[in-house]
Design a protein around this nucleic acid. Structure first.
Lengths: 208, 208, 208, 208
DNA sequence: TATGAATGAGTGTTCATTCAT
DNA sequence: AATGAATGAACACTCATTCAT
């Protein structure tokens, strides 16, 4: 049995454990918020003991940092902005539909993020650097491309990309405030995306 | 000196004290979030003792409820949606400018609200009922009016109003994530509102 | 108008107020115990403000001391031992009936007393000196008299008096433990006194 | 090493810890009463930290309930009534001596019990059901037996048993009020029991 | 490496006491 | 003299973190 393999296996196990704990933390943090969440609950959710958490993370806060910094985001919210499909020439509704769907599914994480950014501005910087700005860049590239081929007006795509992302984020927020009984719940994601895309492309105004 | 005056004066003092404490709570809650905030800090910020808080509010949570339910909102976030000026025939940029400005100024409270709604859905219902839905109705009325006089296309104004509000809220969120050094900070509120209004009215698409 | 009268009147008012507050304190203390009782509740029960209590008593504890030391006891528990009627040549049942009745009526105060004596032995000493010992002396005198005239056996009346008092106190305690649904509740005070007196005079044993 | 042994050992440790804390609580509660006692003091007395108490008991009150409901009573006050020796044909003085001795040794607990019963009648019901009534039944059985074999008069043994228990409890109360310098302290338990038994059997009255 | 009992600092809340009116 | 708002010390309870097994 090679020694390295043993080492690698160990590393792999460590990584899996970390993921397992972070997944549990994400669940609990996004439901209760950082400070209302208890390590006991995270441990239970992860199926490990409280002590084990501290074998993999320095502190509860470190767990939050790791959570926001990477693991969980890689697989969900990150895609809110950074979708591979964005490189294809897609119709705007399809792009929006993806983003709205992902956003709605991860609204709890988004709120957690917003709340914690307010308390720890570094989180915002980190998140902006790692996720938001690259995501916006991709969206901007998409818009630039469509402006280039003449299917969009020559607007400020820097603002435009932020408006699109903001709109998605904002709809999520409104949805969250109104609750499951609210107006937006009556719409299917698809229809909502279409309506938004329609307004975005054609505008509210009457064509002169 | 009339007797009633005494009673009224007392009542007035009580009201002022409540406001004073709520103002302090708003400050602390929105900086640290509800559970990280301590009553000691709120008391200090309000310039009273901890015990005094409990002469006016049943619990820390009651303080939050009062904060969200009324006082503070009346004077700030409420106006995000419920502006009297909306009844006038105004240009969309002017309407948006107001809303964006108010929203940016109160972004901390908005985040607090979103975070707490997630933990206490009743807050969302209460806020939706008291503030959001009436606000959306006003906005919808404005849109309906403009659709009526032919200055806007006949879009679904129910969705439209939510898109506008969502856009404002979303831009606040993006701004918050990017921080004060972010792209949106470079724009004046006025210019931002104009750009948004422009996109909203004319749309991103090329006129055929 | 004589000055002294004014002074006296003032003194009388003071005394009445004190009594009023002590009566309220007795009510609340005996229901909740000293430390669970709040000055707010005592004030409300007395129909005065909290501040007023402190115009008449130095502290909550002082109120307890005053309560135990005198006022309230004069009119109730004191009589458990110190009855004027004891000087008459009465039948034992009649004497016991009085004592049992008074004791049952004031069982809450007795418990308060016992509980507080444990924490503040001086209370015990004070109470013993002022109430119990004189009371026992009277009872002993009564027993001595009956021993003297041959209607009782020549027992140790020092112990005998304590046994009688103890029996009454103990029956109160048992009654309190068993609650209102307990066995002793089914007995009338009169019948209970008779039974006790019967056992006390004749004894449980068979006459040889 | 068997696995079960490990589990059992843990359980044993838990039980010991509970006992240790309850013993400390008994000490502190009976000295200061329930509400004046602090968890800090109980923890110190038990030689553990405050937090540890809450690993074994839900609340301070739960600690009191556990104390009254079981552990401590099993080994002390319970025996005030429920002695195995009572089944033997013993002389009344011997029976009384046991009871008086146990009672005097646990007078602090008795007072605690009486005080808390007043505030929490369920305690009384629980105690009556679990301890007092069975104890009285045993005593009654003993009296019935002696009535049956003609060594006692045919009195109401239901009342009689309560009178005996009451007498013991009452003597404890009188002793507690008079303090260690009081009259009863001069008597040995043995002599006191004899005197009481004497009065109980023969009565105070002159044999006609 | 995993555990979970032990820890003790920290916090919301109560309430006796004070004092300006 | 009477009030009751203000105070702040005190306390029950929680929970992140440690460490012996």
């Amino acid at each position: 049995m090679p020694v390295q393999s043993n080492h690698k296996k160990k590393e792999a196990i460590t990584k899996r454990r970390k993921r397992q704990i972070i997944a549990a933390a994400r669940e609990v943090f996004s439901q209760k918020g950082f400070s209302e969440a208890t390590t006991a609950e995270i441990a239970q959710q992860a199926g490990v003991s409280e002590g084990t958490i501290y074998n993999y993370f320095e502190s509860k806060r470190d767990l939050l940092v790791s959570l926001i910094g990477g693991y969980a985001l890689d697989e969900s919210l990150l895609n809110l902005f950074k979708s591979p499909s964005i490189n294809n020439i897609e119709s705007l509704p399809a792009v929006l539909e993806d983003r709205i769907e992902i956003g709605f599914e991860n609204s709890d994480l988004l709120t957690l993020l917003l709340a914690e950014i307010q308390r720890t501005p570094e989180f915002g910087e980190q998140y902006a650097r790692q996720v938001l700005v690259p995501g916006l860049a991709l969206l901007k590239a998409y818009l630039d491309m469509r402006v280039g081929n003449g299917t969009l007006r020559p607007v400020d795509t820097e603002v435009g990309s932020r408006i699109i992302v903001g709109m998605v984020v904002g709809l999520i927020a409104v949805h969250q405030i109104e609750g499951d009984g609210g107006f937006l719940s009556k719409y299917s994601i698809k229809d909502l995306a279409e309506e938004v895309a329609n307004i975005l492309t054609v505008g509210l105004g009457t064509k002169k």
